[in-house]
Design a protein around this nucleic acid. Structure first.
Lengths: 190, 190
DNA sequence: TATGGTGATTGCACAAGCTGAAATCACACT
DNA sequence: AGTGTGATTTCAGCTTGTGCAATCACCATA
């Protein structure tokens, strides 16, 4: 008999998502999450630096994949295309298959300002990471930041569509449409 | 003799900015801020819903001005131009004159992840507000979101330049350059 | 001048988030 | 058998944030 039940982190993440979904983020205490996972509050904080972070276990992996994908891309591609290609691959590889969990998680985040701020923070870090890779590829920093930001903006627009109930297209297919719409909007100005 | 010294909010904001600047956000307690402003911790929380918010007194006014400016803009302007025009006016009216304070505040925010998240949250709320005004002007919601996001992206790029030491141009003048760079980046993709 | 309402401030008690330090003890390795 | 590792736990404590009741100068009105 093992000393402890395995997969403590997974149990905490699952318990947290369930509880946030059932009763909301604010009405759920860390002690409650730990209890449902058959652990203590202190153990929760051994695995996650704060209460919000339990919902963002995926984002580090996501960022790694995207960065790798950009690094592997053809060096002649314009920066925005390199980023968009990476986002498409990752959408297929990591998001599309787990659509229900992703949507459920997104609903929880959308219901709470604190979680939205954390999500924005993760997106900002990802944007900076993307810009850094582009800069390493020879892009000048200002252009790299704009390309990364534009790609993330299109991604956000596509994601919003993708999470709408009744939407049947894949995230990967929605992204190019969002990019076209962005280009149209930007070109129509000035 | 008045019962209390006047301008409690101003004193709290000033004390907070000074302390955050001197010793960092995390190392500063709310009790400390209140003490320097000759008030109590409880009074701090009467004026600000949380510790971070003391740095963001300006953002509500900023948002109001931008929204008003867009509402007042010519209805025939493309959405992005309407937003950019508003950002330029507000840059001149509210930011350029207080450049030193703005830069100091920005340095404090840049030094702390919690504050960055709050800043991102404020920007997101502003983006949504802009998109809402554009939608009210007849724009479809998806386009409104992209126009608002693109304008904020350019604004961010221009702001980063503006806060660089040695930069002499005004924020208003830097914005069109950022927009041109964004357009170039977006157009270069396929 | 008297009177009573207003409202910013305060003290107190308490929930919840988060942390450092020390103790526990199955498991693996020797 | 003996020892070290490391995930977990307990505990004590600090900080953030909130609800509630009390204070008391100021002000409008009689």
């Amino acid at each position: 008999m093992p000393r402890w039940k395995p997969d403590a982190v997974d149990r905490l993440q699952a318990a947290a998502l369930d509880l946030f979904d059932e009763q909301g983020f604010e009405r759920t205490t860390v002690a409650e999450i730990a209890q449902r996972a058959e652990l203590t509050q202190r153990t929760f904080f051994n695995h996650f630096p704060d209460k919000r972070e339990v919902l963002f276990g995926m984002s580090s992996q996501l960022q790694q994949e995207i960065v790798s994908e950009i690094e592997a891309a053809d060096h002649d591609l314009p920066p925005l295309d390199a980023v968009l290609g990476a986002l498409e691959v990752v959408a297929d590889k990591l998001l599309e298959s787990r659509r229900d969990v992703v949507v459920r998680r997104y609903a929880v985040i959308a219901a709470n300002p604190e979680l939205q701020e954390r999500e924005l923070g993760k997106n900002a870090v990802l944007t900076e990471a993307i810009a850094a890779v582009l800069t390493a590829r020879g892009c000048d920093p200002a252009t790299a930041f704009l390309a990364a930001g534009a790609a993330m903006l299109a991604q956000q627009a596509a994601f919003q569509r993708w999470t709408r109930p009744g939407e049947t297209r894949t995230l990967r297919d929605l992204l190019p449409d969002a990019v076209r719409a962005l280009r149209t909007t930007v070109d129509r100005a000035s």
